[in-house]
Amino acid sequence: MQVSSEALVHNLRQQLAGRSAVDVLNSVAAQFPGKAVFSTSFGLEDQIITHLIFENNLPIKVFTLDTARNFQETYSTWNKTLRRYGKAIEPYFPWRPAVEELLLEKGPNSFYDSVENRKECCGIRKVEPLKRALNGQHAWFTGIRAEQSANRQDMHAVEWDAAHQLLKFHPLFDWTFEQCWEFVHAHSVPFNPLHQQGFVSIGCAPCTRAIQPGEDFRAGRWWWEDQSARECGLHNTPHGPDPVAEPVAAS
């Protein structure tokens, strides 16, 4: 890219402020032709963005990370989505030798033993395939919403991802969970049936559970870990400070 990341983020935040999700998708895809992608895990938010991309024939590649540990309900949702829209969703798998070595050395459930082991598994099954999927791209769309967790409220709808050297967009950033359900029902968007069983965040089957009323959105992920901010490494890779944040006045 020929201009600085700070200028890009600043200009895009101004340009896209107050725009609808489909307008954001369309505008960004037009500015980065052939270099805009969307990653789906077939959760509620991701299904909405997939619907907007496919229904409007937007030139955005949709891909998913198949960790080989997904729920069967997730695979069923994937299949229903293919049937509904008739558009391709490109799968990215973990590097087989790395998975084989992990299972040989530590077994299939090492992630329960320590945070380090869990991050190692996520790194093999998610982070490395994501790097391949994003290689050479300029714009990455996600289904992140601000209310999903406290650390995500500190994010912005447009960001610079220093780890992958690209722009990152969250078209549903300001949507509520209720708004997502309203859209899904209004447009008959296929959704993962686990959402009706108390799952709000759906990842790998061994690492995801339903949440109880009043629990944080992320409480169902890696619930055996005593942490308030639980991420797999896809969205907490080093971004560095916000390049266009307002300076803090000295006290």
Rank of each mutant, 00 (worst) to 15 (best):
P91E: 14
Y92P: 07
F93W: 07
F93V: 04
V99D: 09
E100C: 00
L102A: 13
K106D: 14
N109K: 02
F111N: 05
Y112T: 09
D113Q: 14
D113Y: 01
S114A: 12
V115G: 01
R118S: 10
R118Y: 03
K119H: 12
G123N: 08
G123Y: 04
E128Y: 02
R132K: 14
R132E: 15
A133Q: 09
L134A: 13
N135H: 13
G136H: 04
Q137Y: 03
G143W: 03
R145I: 15
A146S: 11
S149R: 04
S149L: 13
D154H: 00
M155V: 01
H156Q: 15
V158N: 08
A163M: 07
A163F: 10
H164Y: 13
H164M: 12
H164A: 14
L167P: 06
L167W: 00
K168T: 12
L172I: 12
W175M: 07
F177K: 10
C180G: 12
W181L: 14
E182H: 06
F183R: 02
A186V: 08
H187L: 08
S188E: 15
S188Y: 05
P190Y: 00
F191D: 06
N192S: 06
P193F: 00
L194C: 05
H195F: 06
Q196Y: 00
G198M: 08
G198K: 05
F199C: 11
F199Q: 11
G203R: 04
A205S: 13
A205V: 06
P206L: 11
P206S: 12
C207N: 08
T208L: 02
